[in-house]
Design a protein around this nucleic acid. Structure first.
Length: 701
DNA sequence: TAACAAGACCCCGAG
DNA sequence: GGTCTTGTTA
């Protein structure tokens, strides 16, 4: 490999030319702990990339480097860039990935120490929701008081704080607050939830962090091997780590303290899932002799955009003072679109975008529309489609969440993990094989009382004195042997062959082939796509010299994938539509930020000053995604939750210094595209905070 | 047990 | 507005 043969003349020798002074210092300081405070667009990824290359240059082996990122996309991108610098062969040994994926890898190795087996299933949030739903029923709780979503987020919150059911039960504050919220039996749900997951040999997303921490806590000898393995630790987006993540990283770095974390307090936007910005703020105190590097020059955006973003974020009281600046072009002022309704807003956005594309001749992929909530995408989608602007939507229902895909995955999951109860429930009667609700309940109950997997019961119903008739017994036995058949097949065939067989022999293919409705055609397409994804996975593994083409690896990867990670060729030149959260870390030449209204952005869920500041940071993130220009829009009324709501413009519009906006009537052209709708200037409506009027809609058919 | 209709609830964000 | 759950029939 030409790139690798002569370490003396490496690509990193001319680092001084490639980096500014601060970046250079941050890259080349490797003696001890360091904190890099990196403003938006300041070349954070660049610094991390070169730092890893620099470490490899200086004798570290790739497998000694642990680099944790927040999204798969960030990990992939960084890996690609490093591969370019040091060669694919070396880059592939790096331990680089999201917290969840790296920890799940570790957990598969060490599963036995935690009472799991290495083929454990990862429950996604719909799996855990369905489990919680059945627990509420089982405990005969009132589902009006015990709301599934609420229970789920409370369990998640507890886990993120490393509060196990046992700790929870002993915490008088928690118990009292459950009393007050009329859900005193929450703890029972939590307990049973953990127990069922364990019986199912399954972990949810939060468990991946929680159990890794437990593993290192309870087994110092295991911790020691990982401490020694990872000689250098790098963590991206440290401002968004939660307690579990922080503790694990601290444990790993405790001895050698060769740790470098990068973050920007102004971009901390994940406190809702337990992220704690103090992890970053306290970092210097945690590690004595910690070096601090500040990257303040923004290379991404125009001066106008950087200054506008600065003026916004300066309204936050809690922040590390930074002087983020750009010495790029002054750039264009922000354009503000005012619309009467969400429909008009989408219309105006599409029109403005089309105009801009005509002027700039930039590609569709240079444009992004960012919104606060996924629900806003639908109207925008419609408007873009009318103008034949190609787009892609991230988030919402991802490919792997679609029914037909989940169904097949459930078969595959049950094959590799026969204890997986959620998968079992999903497919025992799909495709319909005459095993009804009552029978299912009996099977599950028997499985619980005998402490065996439901699959075990199904295989030998006679052993468990099930109260069912012979016909039903036959049916469930057939299901049992079907799965058993697949399991045998899986022992010596690769993942693709097994999956293909599942699709056919389970009857799924037949079920979605009964007619040619558009729904079924699209289902078939999705099934085909899943199969080819599995095939591709097998091929990639084979190319990498990996002979183990195991289903378990595929499932593990899939469970942690999001839509962002599955981009096909024909998705390349399209306008990106996503939430602001999803846009973190990305950049586009032209950005549209829509729905700048009170109760939407900032969110109506936001009550405290702290939460409001997080919303403001969120808008800061959105603004700083743009390289060249930015359009902001809001609507005076919006269809939400099945009714039209009127709202005021977001207070954040007034937080951004007015001089960075184009004045609404500067152009001859009116901002509003539909002539029937009244236009409003930015200052028509005072930024009063009022509860939205709720009007009944009269569009019922 | 399955197919269909009415009704509830939702919508904050992600791995 | 759409999705998911529950209730009603044959």
């Amino acid at each position: 490999m030409a790139i690798e043969q002569s370490p003396a003349t490496s690509q990193t020798d001319n680092l001084r030319d490639l980096l500014n002074a601060n970046q250079y210092e941050a890259v080349t300081y490797t003696d001890g702990p360091s904190l890099i405070v990196a403003g938006a667009g300041s070349g954070k990824t660049r610094v991390l990339t070169y730092k890893i290359a620099y470490l490899l240059q200086n004798g570290w082996h790739p497998s000694q480097i642990l680099a944790l990122t927040f999204t798969n996309k960030a990990a992939e991108e960084m890996k690609g860039r490093i591969a370019k610098l040091v060669g694919e062969q070396r880059a592939k040994y790096l331990w680089m990935g999201t917290f969840h994926s790296i920890f799940s890898k570790i957990l598969r190795y060490e599963a036995s120490h935690l009472g799991f087996t290495s083929n454990f299933t990862i429950y996604d949030s719909s799996d855990s929701k369905s489990l919680i739903r059945s627990l509420i029923k089982e405990l005969q709780l009132d589902d009006k008081t015990y709301k599934v979503n609420n229970i789920q987020s409370r369990i998640s919150f507890a886990k993120n704080q490393l509060v196990t059911p046992a700790t929870y039960a002993n915490d008088s504050d928690m118990m009292r607050s459950d009393m007050n919220s009329k859900t005193p039996r929450f703890i029972e749900v939590y307990q049973l939830y953990c127990q069922r997951c364990r019986n199912s040999n399954a972990m949810d997303f939060d468990d991946l962090l929680l159990y890794t921490n437990t593993l290192f806590e309870k087994h110092p000898e295991i911790l020691k091997t990982y401490q020694e393995r990872f000689g250098y630790i790098l963590v991206d987006e440290y401002q968004d780590t939660n307690r579990a993540q922080h503790l694990i990283v601290s444990k790993l770095a405790a001895n050698h303290q060769r740790i470098c974390v990068v973050g920007d307090d102004a971009q901390s936007i994940y406190s809702f899932r337990g992220a704690n910005i103090d992890n970053m703020l306290m970092f210097q105190r945690q590690y004595e002799g910690c070096k601090l590097f500040k990257l303040e020059q923004n290379y991404r955006s125009t001066q106008t955009l950087v200054n506008a973003a600065n003026s916004l974020i300066s309204r936050n009281k809690n922040q590390i003072r930074k002087n983020v600046f750009s010495d790029g072009d002054i750039g264009k002022a922000i354009k503000l679109l005012t619309a009467y309704s969400d429909y008009d807003e989408a219309f105006a956005v599409a029109a403005t975008m089309q105009e801009s594309i005509r002027d700039t001749r930039d590609a569709y992929s240079d444009y992004a529309i960012l919104y606060r909530t996924n629900a806003q995408s639908r109207t925008l989608e419609e408007a873009l489609r009318k103008r034949a602007i190609p787009y892609k939507i991230y988030g919402g229902l991802s490919f792997y969440q679609r029914k037909e895909v989940k169904d097949i995955l459930a078969y595959l999951r049950l094959i590799i993990n026969p204890n997986d109860e959620e998968s079992f429930k999903r497919i025992i009667n799909y495709p319909a094989r005459g095993i009804g609700e009552t029978t299912q309940q009996k099977i599950l109950q028997t499985a619980h009382t005998h402490a065996v997997s439901p699959l075990e019961v199904v295989k030998n119903p006679a052993d468990f004195t099930l109260d069912i008739n012979n016909g039903t017994a036959k049916k469930i036995q057939n299901f049992g042997s079907l799965i058993e058949q697949f399991r045998t097949l899986n022992e010596d065939k690769d993942a693709y062959v097994v999956a293909e067989q599942v699709v056919i022999a389970s009857g799924i293919m037949q079920d979605i082939s009964v007619d040619n409705t558009p729904e079924n055609l699209s289902r078939k397409e999705n099934v085909q796509e899943l199969l080819s994804a599995i095939n591709q996975f097998c091929e990639e593994k084979a190319n990498a010299g990996d002979t183990e083409l195991k289903l378990v690896d595929f499932l593990s990867e899939v469970a942690l994938l999001t839509d962002q990670d599955k981009e096909s060729e024909n998705d390349k030149n399209r306008v990106t539509m996503m939430t602001v959260h999803a846009a973190k870390g990305l950049e586009f030449k032209h950005v549209f930020i829509v729905g700048l209204e009170e109760n939407l952005f900032p969110s109506n869920m936001c009550e405290t000053e702290r939460e409001l500041e997080e919303e403001r940071r969120l808008l800061y993130v959105a603004l700083t995604r743009a390289k060249i220009d930015c359009v902001i829009s809001y609507a005076k009324s919006r269809f939400r939750n099945g009714q039209t709501q009127f709202s005021n413009p977001s207070r954040f519009l007034h937080d951004i210094d007015a001089k960075y906006f184009q004045t609404p009537y500067e152009d001859k052209k009116p901002e509003i595209v539909r002539s029937t709708t009244p236009t409003f200037s930015k200052f028509d409506t005072p930024p009063t905070i009022s509860t939205p009027q709720r009007l009944k809609t009269y569009c019922a058919k």
